[in-house]
Simulated assay, not measured.
Amino acid sequence: MLKTYSKWAINKCRTYVTRPSHMNIFDRNAKRLQKERAALSPDVELYDYLKDEVGFRLADRVFDIKREFKTAANIGCHRGYISKHILAECVQHLTLTDSSASMLEQAQGTPGLQMRKVVLDEEELDFEDNSLDLVISSLSLHWVNDLPGCFAKIKQSLKPDGVFIASLFGGDTLFELRSSLQLAELERKGGIAPHVSPFTQIRDIGSLLNRAGFTMLTIDTDEMVIGYPSMFELLWDLKGMAENNAAFNRPAHISRETLLAASAIYQELYAKPNEKGVPATFQIIYFVGWKPGPNQPQPLERGTGEVSLKDLGKVIEGVGKVKTEN
């Protein structure tokens, strides 16, 4: 009896250890096929407007760091929305990765920029430890199931004092579309289905980066509101961007009457008076995280302060008097 119980306990322990620490929400193969389909479309460039703008803004954050990066990697590069803005004077060698071979093939860089392209899923990063000075990613990581694990792998691949700069869609993205579809289904079906994939909340990004070991975090958000003639043009453009739903529990189809009802609700709730079309909000989260290094600024040891916080008002008053006298 004791021997049988021991085997049972060992098997339970093995099951617990091998159980994944995250839940698979997104179908990565479906997302790859969506990206392949979008890349092979003859008018794929028509849907680059949003990602191209965000890629430009992210590249501008790279230029703000007054340092020349010898080795860098662009995770989930799509059609090269960042690489087309990265200058050779800033980055010496850039590795582009994406799960879609067709999108990766279409990615281009600036003159003189040394590039290497690797078909690689964002959830299966295999860069050597301490091999990269910079990791960048634009509007790709919101489709990753194990985001803490992805951040940990990126931090492991960075050299000490290396930097991770990325952007992803925030939780308020497409709130108009989500609420319109939910209200339409409640009216027509008596329940709702997840037609819009979940997004990461800004309040979670900082804790995830800290958990992965990044320091000196900088996080900010931006909202881009784009007008469309109707909800249907928005849905068509999302498909052209390869940003259509890829969750495992997504419904196989949505009825025509539900779509028409959702479009009418969208128009009624969110269209501005005396204006044609409807708005769609895209919340963009930008963040910068650094891998700890010996040359980074360090906080003073506890107890070394010379002024108490309770006397801070007196210090400010003293500084004001000195400026007035001068």
Rank of each mutant, 00 (worst) to 15 (best):
L312A: 15
S207P: 00
I284W: 02
T258M: 04
D129C: 11
D52M: 11
A252I: 05
F63T: 15
K66H: 09
N249T: 08
K291G: 01
F214R: 03
Q298L: 06
Q92I: 07
T304A: 08
S167G: 01
I136F: 02
A88Q: 11
E45K: 09
S230R: 07
M216R: 12
L46Y: 08
Q298P: 03
S207A: 07
E68T: 10
K239Q: 09
L40G: 07
Y228P: 03
A107Y: 07
K153S: 14
K117P: 00
I86N: 01
K35Y: 04
L234I: 03
P299G: 13
I136S: 00
G227Q: 15
K314Y: 14
I75Y: 13
E325L: 15
D237N: 08
I219G: 05
L50N: 02
E89N: 13
A262M: 07
W290P: 06
K276L: 02
Q114F: 04
P279W: 06
S180N: 06
D133M: 03
F232I: 14
P273L: 13
R79L: 14
H93K: 14
F151M: 12
D52Y: 10
R178V: 04
L238I: 10
M224N: 15
E243N: 01
L183K: 14
A242K: 10
T221E: 11
Q156H: 10
R203G: 04
D161T: 08
V319M: 15
K117H: 10
R79T: 10
I75F: 13
A39S: 08
E128C: 06
K239R: 06
I284E: 01
V44C: 10
S138T: 06
H253W: 05
L96D: 06
R37L: 15
V91R: 06
D60R: 15
V307Y: 14
L312S: 14
G55W: 03
D121A: 04
V163Y: 02
I205G: 00
E68G: 01
P229N: 04
E301H: 12
P198I: 07
W8N: 11
D220G: 10
L125N: 01
K314P: 03
S255D: 08
K51G: 12
G289F: 05
D311L: 13
R250Y: 12
M1N: 00
F175V: 12
W143C: 14
K12P: 03
V91I: 12
A264S: 13
V196L: 05
E257S: 08
T215Q: 11
T71D: 10
Y16G: 10
V319R: 03
H78R: 06
S6T: 09
S180T: 08
L209F: 04
R188Y: 13
